[in-house]
């Protein structure tokens, strides 16, 4: 199931990349290159072959684990992705944690106080998040917390020396190497971008949590538990929460795709050296081998995250077994 989808994604990107009115060979050669140089590059890179041959070449290389070379960096795209991916992964994961940690309680509050003022407030708050242009919020926050107040660090992933490279995830690397300065540094750099990004998908989680809680509340066993005289708090914790979490998890999985999309603007505004940032640069310069590589990886991550969500049902809901 995954392979045909990925192939589909790739062929569409490939098609789009070849209707572009920019000459890739010219691009590789750079300005003031002679026509002979351009012609040679075109031949060597196979850019003079028919489109389907080029696509075939790309796919066969792909199965050998080769994503091709970036036109601009002249480096293997895979190497570029290995460099840029951890930053994006760290950012989206922390943003997601933020969404879960804030969104689920808010959803519960909304459900418990259905249609009361707390419910309206929490929903309004989360709707503002989903309606906020990410890039605008990011700019405003940085101006306020970094320039005016100076209590949060500015753009970038880290101010001081990055931790020794193990995984490329700064948090993990600094924990592994016991580099607490780097840990604090990189965590504080994550606060604003993760908040901005997470806030954008918060509403979905709140909405889903609220409606599934309400759904659960109306079930017989909750009524029974209440009738037994259990306190409301323990009804929510012991009985309702678990069952309400499942649909919310699905939504969280789906939201991951949106986080990846939102990461584009977030990374630009916060000078975050991630993939989205890389892909915008590639797109602007029509460096399509790079664009293809990133699209592939993002599609894969998205599919995997949703697979993980499916599997995690089994832990929450004992009725589902894989």
């Amino acid at each position: 199931m995954i392979i045909p989808i990925v192939l589909g994604v790739l062929s569409i990107t490939f098609l789009i990349s070849h209707i572009v009115p920019g000459d890739a060979a010219q691009l590789m050669a750079g300005p003031r290159a002679t026509p002979e140089i351009i012609e040679r590059i075109r031949r060597e890179s196979g850019l003079d072959r028919p489109l389907y041959v080029q696509f075939g070449m790309y796919i066969s290389e792909l199965f050998k684990g080769d994503l091709g070379k970036s036109i601009l960096t002249r480096r293997p795209v895979l190497a570029d992705i290995v460099d840029y991916f951890p930053a994006t992964f760290e950012l989206t994961t922390v943003a997601m944690l933020f969404t879960v940690i804030v969104g689920i309680p808010l959803g519960i509050i909304s459900a418990v106080h259905k249609d009361k003022i707390l419910d309206q407030l929490s929903r309004l708050g989360s709707v503002i998040g989903v309606s906020m242009p990410i890039f605008w919020l990011g700019l405003l926050l940085m101006l306020f917390f970094y320039v005016r107040l100076g209590i949060l660090p500015g753009p970038g992933r880290i101010t001081g020396e990055p931790p020794a490279h193990i995984t490329g995830l700064f948090i993990l690397d600094s924990v592994l190497t016991g580099n607490w300065r780097a840990l604090v540094d990189s965590l504080s750099h994550l606060v604003m971008p993760a908040f901005v990004l997470g806030y954008a998908v918060l509403a979905r989680v709140v909405r889903m949590m609220r409606s599934s809680m309400l759904d659960v509340f109306s079930q017989d066993y909750i009524q029974t538990a209440r009738a037994k005289g259990l306190r409301e708090g323990s009804v929510i914790r012991k009985h309702a929460l678990r069952n309400a979490l499942i649909p919310t998890l699905t939504v969280i999985g789906l939201s991951y795709g949106e986080l990846l999309g939102g990461a584009v603007a977030t990374e630009l505004i916060f000078a975050w050296p991630g993939m989205a940032h890389y892909v915008v640069g590639s797109m602007r310069t029509l460096d399509f081998p790079a664009v293809m590589g990133v699209t592939l990886v993002i599609a894969l991550v998205y599919i995997l995250v949703n697979l993980l969500v499916d599997i995690s049902y089994a832990f929450i809901d004992p009725r589902i077994r894989y």
Binding site: L139, M142, L143, Y146, V147, G150, G154, P155, G156, L268, I269, F270, A271, P273, H277, G281
Partner: peptide, 15 residues
């Protein structure tokens, strides 16, 4: 350092 946004660069220079 690579700072893609001019607005960001300005902030960093100011601080």
């Amino acid at each position: 350092r690579y700072i893609p946004e001019a607005a960001d660069l300005r902030m960093l220079l100011e601080t």
